[in-house]
């Protein structure tokens, strides 16, 4: 192992070939379903059940998913659902940032009574079963008239986005020497300006990472929109599942196309921010 730990010291041995084969095996398992979805999504209605790998590709399914016909099949406007998801997630992340950045800063800078409780409360949201709050929220939302609205979704998605933002950013603020802000105070800047001009720019990677990760997880959430929305504020995750039960007849190719469309934004985002993801995924517990 130690030999392999050092860069530039690689030899082709039986062991290294076996290791490479194992890696390849994993990635075949890991990537095949995605590849298969792509193939399925490119098949026409006839090919979808008659052939596995040889067919003439078509983009019709993507068009259909987003068209009136898709809406007729599933009673959900898929394009509308995607747009709703975008608005919900952007809204939820923005609210979490506005609310969470000051809280993360306070928790990262001061040891004050209740700060640890607050942080643990946040963490417990991450691990709490969603249904615990959903049933009462269902009643509350109906009372407040925010059932099946974007406002309602943005609020409930805080359960997903807030813990991420607060925990990740606290770990970034903790890593930042308080003496930098102290220097700014002595330079004559107020605490707010010291925070805005010194601390905040230095945790920009943390803000980007937590915001994008929060966006991804909010996008991927299924239970909240499943129960707290109907048709007006349906999100993409719910919309995808509607294709599965498409009125008796199976539309595998359409389902695959919808699944791909729903999976695409998180995949693209993840590949662009991969560098920062590790720390975010572990809530700052693992720093890479």
């Amino acid at each position: 192992m130690a030999k392999e730990l050092k860069p530039g010291q690689r030899r082709v041995t039986a062991g290294s070939v076996v290791a490479d084969l194992m890696i390849v095996a994993w990635f075949v398992f890991s990537l095949f379903p995605l590849l298969w979805m792509l193939l399925l999504a490119l098949k026409n209605d006839a090919d979808q059940t008659s052939t596995y790998f040889a067919f003439s590709p078509t983009f019709d399914n993507f068009v259909t998913v987003l068209s009136q016909r898709g809406q007729d099949l599933t009673s959900v406007d898929f394009g509308q659902a995607m747009w709703t998801s975008v608005l919900n997630c952007v809204g939820a992340v923005l609210v979490s940032l506005v609310v969470g950045v000051p809280a993360a800063y306070a928790a990262g800078r001061w040891k004050y009574r209740g700060s640890e409780n607050l942080m643990f409360q946040m963490l417990s949201f991450r691990f709490a079963p969603e249904l615990m709050v959903i049933v009462p929220l269902f009643v509350i939302y109906n009372t407040l008239g925010i059932f099946d609205t974007k406002v309602g979704m943005v609020w409930v998605l805080q359960l997903v986005t807030m813990p991420l933002v607060v925990w990740i950013l606290r770990s970034y603020f903790q890593d930042l020497s308080p003496e930098l802000e102290q220097a700014a105070l002595l330079d004559g800047y107020t605490r707010i300006r010291a925070f805005l001009t010194v601390a905040l720019p230095l945790v920009r990677p943390g803000i980007a990472a937590s915001a994008l990760l929060a966006f991804i997880f909010a996008w991927n959430n299924y239970v909240f929109p499943l129960i707290l929305t109907d048709s007006a504020a349906t999100t993409v995750t719910v919309a995808v599942t509607k294709f599965l039960g498409g009125g008796g007849q199976a539309y595998y190719n359409l389902t695959a196309a919808a699944a791909l469309l729903g999976a695409l934004p998180p995949l693209v985002l993840a590949l662009t921010i991969q560098r920062y993801l590790v720390r975010g995924l572990s809530f700052g517990a693992v720093k890479a």
Binding site: N220, T241, P266, L271
Partner: peptide
């Protein structure tokens, strides 16, 4: 392949369920 490692993790679990249901 390392860059692609994360892909399944970023897909909504419900969509992953849909994908595997088809398979």
């Amino acid at each position: 392949f390392e860059r692609l490692l994360i892909l399944p993790l970023m897909i909504a679990p419900v969509i992953a369920g849909v994908i595997w249901k088809l398979m």
